[in-house]
Amino acid sequence: MAAEPGAGDVSVDLLTETYRDHYASLLKLAALLLDDTASCEDVVQEAFIRVHSARTRVRDADKLLAYLRQTVVNLSRSTLRRRLIGLRLAPKPMPDMASAEEGAYELLEKDALIQALRGIQRRQREVLVLRYFADLTEAQVATLLGISVGSVKAYGSRGIEALRVRMEAFR
């Protein structure tokens, strides 16, 4: 991080840098965790706002990505649990306007892997996404989800098996 957090302008610079570095990956992480692609953008934006609004978190630049990822996971879980629809910070496209991401989301909805991921348990999905998409170690996944490493291994193994079964069912 080149910008030193603390002041307001510096924080904006840090926000821009963090956005350029991590926003896309966090958006993809949210798309894999959520079963509602419309909420992905809201979840990631809310995560950015929360983390950057708290100056104590912004000051610790080394842990900024961890904070963001943790927040994305928590918000995705909350969205899945309560169907949180209040996080509408991004301007919604007009009904007659076709956004640039519309095609990407359509492809995402048609992807067999995404469909299979949405069919397995939430814990298994979280472990698989964090373990293989975010490339986190089992210990990091365990820390992020608040479970033991053994549970991460078990969720991962059973999640892969469940995912394989569902992928074969789509064929």
């Binding site: 924080s11 904006v12 926000l15 821009t16 956005y19 926003y23 896309a24 958006l27 993809k28 798309a31 894999l32 992905c40 953008e41 934006q45 950015f48 706002i49 950057h52 609004s53 910070l89 991004a90 301007p91 956004s99 640039a100 991401e101 095609g103 990407a104 989301y105 492809l107 995402l108 992807d111 892997l113 995404i114 698989l128 996404v129 373990r131 293989y132 998409f133 490339d135 991962g156 892969i160 995912l163 394989r164």
Partner: peptide, 30 residues
Amino acid sequence: LGAVLRMRMQQAVSGLEPHPGTLEVLRRAV
């Protein structure tokens, strides 16, 4: 299977890009 899954996940979400204007929204929202 994990390696295959990692590759398939990357391919599935490769087309996702942030919404235009998101950075401006964040700059105002924070």
